[in-house]
């Protein structure tokens, strides 16, 4: 088909990645399966960030608030109100989406540097709010959700989310769902509009597009993905703390996406995986492991701005979505 990436190859690649990750569940040693579970959940966070940063060209410095909205939106009802897992997960996503709608509505009145600072400021407000209501959130110390509350019950089925294998599989389901939806969006007219807005906003206006609503839709979508990741994190790993709302968690998805390749569907996974292992490795022998984060950011932006998959796409595989 003209003007389209070859569908067969694209679907085969994504299916292979998901299948490969499924097989890893049965192959990986216990420790690494745990790491991969976290990476898969956080990769969904990075993919959400990528929708806005990579495809729409909006650099937010405040995405921790959407992740944390999902984290608290799901975690607080379980902890305080004994909600069951499924409605809590939904509550997490809805919290993120609603927050994204409100923040997007305000922040999208600005552009460029002002957009970055405004998102940073709003995220900081969110972080401070989690500290202010420390009676309910226990602030930086955070809440640990009891193991017996982390069960997914459907009819007679009772699944303990604390089981390592099940936890991995649920993380994979979340990851795959976000990946497939992202792929679908990227190849849809809406995805094409987002990329075009990134390239030239004024031209899009003169093609009859309401640029603001399209960007707002991207913010909400991005916020909902990040919140889904946050909600899953709370329910799968049972910890909810203010640290996840701090600036560091706004910087990390930016780093993961930059490393893996902005505006690539699989880049966020690669970036998250690499960075997670690099940090995991260095934190083993030095306390100042965040030095790696700083060095990676500078080296990437100086010498490797397209990231891993972005560079591969440029040189060898222009069909990569």
């Amino acid at each position: 088909m003209t003007g389209r990436a070859p569908s067969g190859r694209v679907f085969a690649l994504h299916a292979a990645v998901i299948l490969g990750l499924l097989i890893l569940n049965f192959v990986l040693p216990e420790y690494h399966r745990g790491v991969f579970s976290r990476v898969l959940v956080l990769a969904a966070f990075a993919m959400g960030y990528n929708i806005l940063f990579g495809y729409t060209g909006l650099l937010s410095l405040g995405h921790a608030m959407f992740f944390a909205a999902g984290l608290y939106g799901a975690g607080l009802p379980v902890y305080h109100l004994d909600w069951s897992v499924a409605p809590a997960f939904i509550a997490g996503i809805v919290s993120g989406a609603v927050l994204a709608l409100a923040i997007g509505f305000l922040a999208l009145r600005t552009t460029g540097v002002a957009f970055m600072i405004v998102t940073l400021m709003f995220a900081q407000v969110f972080y401070l709010i989690t500290l202010f209501f420390t009676t309910y959130t226990r602030g930086e110390e955070g809440l640990v959700i009891r193991q017996d509350l982390r069960h997914l019950r459907m009819g007679d089925l009772d699944l303990a989310l604390t089981d390592p294998s099940l936890r991995y599989l649920i993380a994979l389901v979340l990851f795959s769902a976000v990946l497939i939806v992202t792929l679908f969006i990227v190849r849809s007219p809406f995805g094409r509009s987002l990329v075009a807005i990134r390239e030239n906003e004024e031209r899009m206006r003169m093609l009859g597009y309401n640029v603001f609503t399209n960007k707002l839709a991207a913010v909400v979508l991005s916020g909902a993905f990040c919140a889904a990741s946050g909600a899953a994190y709370a329910l799968l790993f049972g910890y909810v703390g203010s640290g996840f709302a701090s600036i560091q968690y706004s910087i990390l998805p930016l780093l993961w996406v930059l490393l893996g390749g902005a505006a690539t569907t699989l880049g966020p996974l690669i970036g998250t995986l690499f960075m997670f292992y690099i940090v995991d490795f260095t934190s083993g022998f030095m306390p100042a492991y965040l030095l790696v984060v700083g060095a990676a950011l500078i080296l990437l932006i100086l010498f490797f701005p397209k990231g891993i998959l972005g560079s591969i796409r440029e040189r060898w595989a222009p069909w990569l979505p």
Binding site: L59, M116, I251, A288, L290, L291, G294, A295, A296, L297
Partner: peptide, 17 residues
């Protein structure tokens, strides 16, 4: 902005070290 964020971590972590 991305680069100065990197700088932030580098200075902060070197001081920690």
């Amino acid at each position: 902005i991305v680069a100065t964020i990197g700088l932030l971590y580098i200075i902060q972590q070197l001081v920690l070290t």
